[in-house]
Design a protein around this nucleic acid. Structure first.
Lengths: 200, 200
DNA sequence: GTCGCTATTGTGGAATACCGCAAGATCGCC
DNA sequence: GGCGATCTTGCGGTATTCCACAATAGCGAC
């Protein structure tokens, strides 16, 4: 399941099948889920694509499912679909980060367009997250001392000052500094600063 | 008008007055506008606060007013108020950056809370923008040559390399470099990198 | 033409950064 | 006890940065 796909969560089998067919004809991969519970149980953080989520379902509602995903750190764009929504509900959902909120009956093309946009949006997010990930992976290889030295480097301090603050010799600071650059795969403090500031 | 206030745009005088009174009792400054046109004519980029915008009005509608503000670079949070809104309209407004979308009749306290949140939100935006502004103001004082040198510094290159690339002496590069640091009010290339990367 | 800004370069020296080589000490793990 | 990772330090030398002082030249504004 490394292929981006639209996760369709709806307790109405007829609708699931209809949507599957619709997306298939437009070249969008889908995966069908008969309930929020089933999806949440299987869901993995790293799934790419988007979610098409019906609000009114037996058992856990779409909104509850959305909340659950939020607390679990979901990053997939969520498109709400509902036949009985209202403005406050839509506003609340969007302000909490939902990607879209569409009412039934909807135009097939509109939904496919939305899903394609959502998947593209997710791709970008994922790329940015991957970049952050590699940087964080490098950070993770630093020892505690190296990280300490790095922080002081990022404050623009001279090795001499860093040595004073940590009460160690300048030569030791140089050693740490050199290893920090190696591990972070940068050649200068400037690159390091850019790499880390970009994370924020 | 440097005081943050809620701009109430509604063509119904009774509603304007009612809202003015409501906000006054809650200590929120207001300014009343009888039409979108009147507001747009007076509007200044740097006004702080937020906008409470009725959708259905004689003349220019609230949505049209919103679009006009968007193209003019408005940063004020916009709270839409309407008695005849629907879900697609609310979704479209929020996705374009509106702060909220509330239906009449609304709870007075809810609206005041929203407005207060919006004003607080604008404060934060404004602070961040001010920071960007000061940095950009400093950038503006750089000469073309200094900016060129700065860009190469930010690529982590040595003065020697920069001198080669620009076909000037190392000493000249040092002079530019020194002036760049002065004008940008930083003491090291690391600070410079952080300051500029934070802009993105 | 004079004034101010900018770009340019030089000299010379002090402060820093950077590097390879070598090595002692501590600590946790098998 | 041996092994590996980490933190620590020193020596000696080269590369770079940073700075004060000084100076020439072009260019646009008044």
């Amino acid at each position: 399941m490394t292929q981006a796909c639209a996760h369709i969560i709806d307790d109405d089998e007829a609708i699931r099948d209809a949507l599957q067919w619709l997306f298939k004809t437009r070249g969008v991969a889908t995966r069908l889920w008969p309930s929020a519970e089933a999806f949440l149980e299987a869901w993995q953080t790293d799934w790419p694509g988007c979610i098409v989520l019906d609000i009114r379902m037996d058992g856990m509602s779409g909104l509850e499912c959305f909340e659950a995903l939020l607390t679990r750190g979901n990053r997939l764009p969520v498109i709400f679909v509902t036949g009985h929504g209202d403005v406050p509900m839509a506003v609340a959902a969007l302000k909490k980060g939902a990607y879209h909120f569409i009412e039934k009956p909807f135009n097939d093309n509109d939904l496919v367009d939305l899903v394609e946009q959502a998947i593209a949006h997710d791709d970008e997010n994922r790329q940015a997250a991957a970049d952050r990930g590699t940087v964080e992976a490098r950070l993770a290889t630093l020892t505690a001392r190296e990280r300490e030295v790095m922080d002081l480097i990022l404050e623009g301090k001279f090795n001499k000052v860093i040595a004073d603050e940590l009460a160690i010799s300048m030569r030791t600071v140089e050693a740490h500094r050199s290893r920090v650059f190696d591990k972070m795969k940068v050649r200068s403090a400037v690159e390091l600063a850019q790499m880390l500031t970009a994370l924020r």
